[in-house]
Design a protein around this nucleic acid. Structure first.
Lengths: 340, 340
DNA sequence: CTGAAAGCGCTTACAG
DNA sequence: CTGAAAGCGCTTACAG
C-alpha cells in the first residue's frame, strides 16, 4: 500500500498552499468558492483522507465523545446509549462506548483510556460501589463531563447530573393505581439504598402516605428472574396485595410471566402491575404493560444537545436537570386491552 | 487550568531524557528497572496523562477499533457489541461504536468518520440495501476489516466474513421438532432474499425435504409485533401447523405472547415454538422458549481475538468462518418446564 | 484572500 | 542503557 495522501499532496495537486487546503478542510469563509471547489476536487481525485490525529495534536480538540455505561445489555441503558450516539454522530462526533458491567474498577480503567484518547466530553451512567470510579481523573483532566441516569457519589466535588424525574414517576404511578381502585399496593424490586431505588421508593411512599394506606416493600434484583420468582411469593404470603409498582420494566415483565405461570390474572379484576421506564417491549407484552414513560430515547437526544453546547460554546449545563416523565397506561393496570 | 504535562515535563522531573520516558511508556525492556520506577513515580506525581493523538500521529497506530452495527437496539446485536467491546477493552483497545439503523447511507458516513479517526480495524454488521455502504472506503484505506453476522454484498472485492452457522442451526431445530413428533412445521418471519433469511430457510427446507414433509413459509418483519400478529393467522388459516421455527427470538417471543392472547397452548400437546439466537430472555419467558443457541457473547469474544491477531501480528482471519451453534431445548418445544 | 514558518507531543532511528 | 535530532500531518498566528 502507498502512503496516504496528506494536505501537502492536495496542495501540490491543486496548486495552492497547504494552509489554504487546511482552511478548506475547516470550511473557512475566507477561501474563495472557486478555490474551495478546486481543492475539494483534488481531494476526491487523489483519495485524500483527513487525519484527525494530526488535527487533534495541533488544535487539541477531538471529535470523540466518551460514553460509559454501567449495564449496556439492559435495554434501558442500551436505548439511551444508542439514541445519544446517533445524535452525536449526526453532528460529526464519534462515540467511544464502554460497558462497565457495574464494576467501578472497570469504570475507572475505561475512563482513563478515554481521557488518553482525548475525548471532548464524557458522559457516565455510573456503577455503584467502592472507589472513586475514575471521577477523580475526570475532574483533574478538566474535560466536560456529565453524570446521567444514576446519581453516584463522586467523592470529589460534583459533576452536573441529569436524569428522568424518577420520584415524580413513581408518585404518579402509585396515584394512578389508587384511582383504579387498588388499596394494597406493593413496591417490588430495587436494591435498597441505591439512589434510583431511593427515589422510586420515595414517590411510592409519598402517594401512599397521602392516601393513608400502608406500604409493602419487597426489594430485590432488577431482573426478569426476580420478577418471575416474586409472583409466587406475592400470591402465597401477600394475598391481599392488589397492585404492584415495579422497580423497573424487567421486574414487571418477569412478574407478568410469573403470574401466567401460576395462573394469576393480571389487570383490572386481578393483580394490577405497573412497570417503570417504558422500554419498547412493554407495549408488546401480554397483557400490555403499563409503565412510567421516561422516554429514554428523547432523553438521550437532550443529553447530546447539552453536551454539544458545552463542548461547542463552553456553556455548561445546569448542575442538576430532571426530565419530566409521564404514564403509559395499558391493560396491566387498567383499560381493556387494545392492539398497541 | 494549567497546561497538561508532557513527556518533557516528566523527563525534567525525573532527570532523564524524553526518549527514555517514551521507552518507559512503551514498557521497553531496554530501560533499567530502577529508571523505570523513577520515571513512573514522576508521572504519578506530576499527573502526567499519555497523549495518544501524538503517539498516533507519529507511529500511525491507534488503540481504537470501529464497530458498526445495523441495529444496536436489538438485544442480539447489543449483546454482540457489548461482549466484543469488553474483550477489546481488556486488551487496551477502545471501541468506537455506531448504530446505522439499517441505513446504508448512515453506514457509509460512520465508516468514513472512523477511518478519519484512524481506527486500527473495523468490524461491521452491515445494513442491507442500496449503495456501497462505505465498503469502498474501507478497501481503499487498507484497514483490517471484518464483516460479521450478515453477509452483505460489498460490490468491491471481499472482506473476510464470520457468523454463527445459521443454516446448520435451523436444520438442527427442524430435526428436533420432527423428533418430538411434529409433522406440519412452519417457518415464520424473516425478510425474503436477505442472506440470513436465506440461510435459516435453507436449513429448515433441507430437514423437511429429508423427511418428505411439506413446507409452509410465512415471511415477515423480525419483530415481536409480527410474531404476536401471526399467532392468530396461524390458528385461523393454518390450523394443521403443529410446530414453528421462528426467524429469530423476537418473533418467537411475540408469537408466545400472541398464543397467550388467543388462549392457545404452547409446547408439547400444543403449538411447539422454536426461537433463533437464544437471547437471554428466552430462558425467562413462559413457557421457557427453546432456541438455537448462537452464543453471541462467546462469538463476540472470538471476533475480538481474531481482530487483535490481525492488528497485532498481521495475520488476517480465514476468508470465511462459521462458528458452531447448538440447541437450547426448553418447554416451548419439548420438556416439561423447569426453573431455568 | 493566500503563503511561509512554527509547533502540537509523541516515536524512531541513530549515536554514544 | 540513554541522549540529541528529525519528523508524523495537521492548525495557527502572522505577513503579504
Amino acid at each position: 500500500m502507498e502512503r496516504r495522501p496528506t494536505i501537502i499532496d492536495v496542495a501540490r495537486h491543486s496548486g495552492v498552499s497547504k494552509s489554504t487546503v487546511s482552511l478548506v478542510l475547516q470550511n473557512s469563509p475566507t477561501v474563495k468558492d472557486e478555490t474551495r471547489r478546486k481543492v475539494r476536487a483534488s481531494m476526491a481525485e487523489i483519495g485524500y483522507v483527513y487525519n484527525r490525529a494530526a488535527a487533534t495534536l495541533r488544535s487539541s480538540t477531538t471529535g470523540l465523545v466518551g460514553l460509559v455505561i454501567n449495564d449496556l445489555r439492559n435495554p434501558f441503558f442500551g436505548e439511551f446509549a444508542t439514541s445519544l450516539q446517533m445524535a452525536l454522530s449526526e453532528k460529526g462526533y464519534a462515540a467511544v462506548i464502554a460497558n462497565t458491567d457495574e464494576d467501578t474498577c472497570v469504570q475507572s480503567q475505561v475512563i482513563g483510556a478515554m481521557i488518553e484518547h482525548g475525548v471532548a466530553a464524557i458522559i457516565v451512567s455510573p456503577a455503584y460501589g467502592e472507589g472513586d470510579g475514575g471521577f477523580g481523573a475526570i475532574l483533574r483532566s478538566g474535560i466536560p463531563a456529565l453524570r446521567v441516569l444514576r446519581r453516584a457519589e463522586t467523592g470529589h466535588g460534583s459533576l452536573p447530573f441529569a436524569a428522568p424525574d424518577y420520584e415524580d414517576g413513581s408518585r404518579a404511578a402509585t396515584e394512578h393505581l389508587l384511582r383504579t381502585g387498588a388499596r394494597r399496593i406493593a413496591f417490588v424490586g430495587g436494591v435498597p439504598n441505591r439512589s434510583v431505588t431511593t427515589l422510586r421508593l420515595q414517590g411510592y411512599r409519598g402517594a401512599l402516605a397521602a392516601a393513608g394506606l400502608p406500604e409493602l416493600i419487597l426489594p430485590g434484583r432488577s431482573t426478569r428472574q426476580f420478577g418471575r420468582d416474586i409472583a409466587e411469593r406475592l400470591a402465597l404470603d401477600h394475598a391481599d396485595i392488589d397492585a404492584v409498582v415495579c422497580f423497573n420494566d424487567l421486574v414487571a415483565l418477569g412478574l407478568l410471566t410469573g403470574c401466567q405461570q401460576i395462573g394469576r390474572k393480571v389487570g383490572a379484576g386481578g393483580l394490577r402491575i405497573m412497570g417503570f421506564d417504558d422500554i419498547e417491549e412493554c407495549a408488546h407484552a401480554w397483557p400490555p404493560l403499563s409503565s412510567v414513560r421516561c422516554d429514554i430515547a428523547e432523553f438521550g437526544e437532550q443529553v447530546a444537545k447539552v453536551i454539544l453546547k458545552w463542548i461547542g460554546e463552553g456553556i455548561p449545563p445546569e448542575p442538576e436537570w430532571l426530565s419530566p416523565v409521564s404514564l403509559a397506561i395499558r391493560a396491566s393496570t387498567d383499560a381493556p386491552s387494545r392492539a398497541s
